[in-house]
Simulated assay, not measured.
Amino acid sequence: MPSLSLIARAAAAAFAGLSFSAFAVPQIVPAEPVALERLHLRLTVDDCVFDKDTVGVELRERTLRVHHRSRQCIVPGAPEVVDILLGALPAGDYAAELVDDASGAASERIAFRVSAIARTLQFPGTPFPVADYSGLWAASAEPGWGLSLHQGAYSTLFGALLVFDRVNQPQWYTLQAGRWITATRWTGSLVRSEGSPWSSAVYVPDATHYLVVGSASLDFRMAPGQEDKATLSYTIEGQNVTKTIVRAPLR
Rank of each mutant, 00 (worst) to 15 (best):
Gln171Asp: 06
Trp172Tyr: 09
Thr174His: 06
Thr174Asp: 03
Thr174Gln: 10
Thr174Arg: 09
Thr174Met: 04
Leu175Phe: 15
Gln176Leu: 12
Ala177Glu: 14
Ala177His: 11
Gly178Ala: 01
Arg179Pro: 01
Arg179Gly: 07
Arg179Ala: 06
Trp180Lys: 10
Trp180Thr: 04
Trp180Ala: 09
Ile181Ser: 09
Thr182Arg: 10
Thr182Tyr: 09
Ala183Tyr: 03
Thr184Met: 04
Thr184Asp: 14
Thr184Arg: 06
Thr184Ala: 03
Arg185Ala: 11
Arg185Ser: 04
Arg185Met: 06
Thr187Leu: 07
Thr187Trp: 01
Thr187Met: 07
Gly188Asp: 00
Gly188Asn: 09
Ser189Leu: 10
Ser189Lys: 11
Leu190Val: 01
Arg192Asp: 00
Arg192Thr: 07
Ser193Gly: 11
Ser193Thr: 12
Gly195Glu: 00
Gly195Arg: 08
Gly195Ala: 00
Trp198Lys: 11
Ser199Leu: 05
Ser200Thr: 08
Ser200Glu: 09
Ala201Arg: 12
Val202Asn: 08
Tyr203Ile: 15
Tyr203Glu: 12
Val204Tyr: 07
Pro205Glu: 13
Pro205Trp: 08
Ala207Val: 11
Ala207Gln: 13
Ala207Thr: 09
Thr208Phe: 15
His209Pro: 06
His209Leu: 13
Tyr210Thr: 00
Tyr210Glu: 08
Tyr210Asn: 11
Val213Ala: 01
Gly214Arg: 12
Gly214Leu: 10
Ser215Ile: 10
Ser215Asn: 14
Ser217Gln: 02
Leu218Phe: 06
Asp219Pro: 08
Phe220Ala: 04
Arg221Pro: 00
Met222Leu: 12
Met222Tyr: 04
Ala223Gln: 14
Pro224Thr: 07
Pro224Ile: 03
Pro224Phe: 13
Pro224Leu: 08
Gly225Thr: 09
Gly225Lys: 08
Glu227Cys: 07
Glu227Asp: 15
Asp228His: 12
Asp228Leu: 08
Ala230Thr: 03
Ala230Asn: 02
